[in-house]
Computed example of a mutant assay.
Amino acid sequence: MKELRCILFKDREVLSAILDRKRRLKEELPAGQITGLRLTNADDSVSCTIVYDNGQQLLTVPETELQAALLAHCMARKVPLPVDADKNVHLIRGRATLMITMNFNRAARLVHVAAAEKRALPN
């Protein structure tokens, strides 16, 4: 049995997630005013392009970086995300969508009793 969960993001949220990640990693951003955001689907991957000054400069963000930014955005806003799940970014009706697939046929992760005793936690 599997469960599929989709989180759709507005363009403003995508932009905020990317810029927050770039600032946190201390990556340099182009100078200028952001005038657009383009999400494209090519070769089974989603990429994001931030447009500065009406196309004079472009910043392209690959899918892996976009996915990391969206996951960090969710965690910063305390959106619960399962650890043992497959996470992918898709473009659905022009919107970035984080698809989370959980497989319930896997064995559950259990906390060992010895580890709980070591931390003085009740069983």
Results as ranks from 00 to 15, higher is better:
residue 38 R to Q: 07
residue 34 I to G: 00
residue 27 E to T: 02
residue 30 P to A: 07
residue 24 R to K: 09
residue 95 R to Y: 09
residue 28 E to R: 11
residue 19 L to I: 15
residue 93 R to G: 01
residue 66 L to H: 01
residue 27 E to M: 11
residue 31 A to I: 11
residue 57 Q to N: 07
residue 119 R to Q: 15
residue 30 P to T: 03
residue 3 E to N: 04
residue 36 G to P: 08
residue 50 I to F: 10
residue 50 I to N: 03
residue 88 N to P: 00
residue 86 D to I: 08
residue 116 A to H: 13
residue 2 K to M: 03
residue 32 G to D: 07
residue 53 D to N: 14
residue 16 S to N: 01
residue 26 K to L: 09
residue 27 E to N: 04
residue 93 R to H: 09
residue 61 V to H: 00
residue 7 I to F: 09
residue 92 I to W: 11
residue 17 A to F: 06
residue 8 L to P: 04
residue 89 V to K: 05
residue 120 A to L: 15
residue 66 L to W: 03
residue 92 I to M: 12
residue 47 S to N: 12
residue 123 N to Y: 14
residue 48 C to K: 05
residue 48 C to T: 11
residue 84 D to C: 00
residue 36 G to M: 07
residue 82 P to A: 12
residue 98 L to H: 05
residue 101 T to Y: 03
residue 101 T to E: 13
residue 16 S to E: 10
residue 22 K to P: 00
residue 43 D to R: 15
residue 70 L to H: 04
residue 57 Q to Y: 02
residue 66 L to F: 03
residue 20 D to H: 06
residue 70 L to P: 02
residue 89 V to S: 04
residue 69 A to K: 00
residue 64 T to H: 02
residue 6 C to A: 08
residue 78 K to E: 11
residue 17 A to I: 06
residue 94 G to L: 08
residue 90 H to R: 13
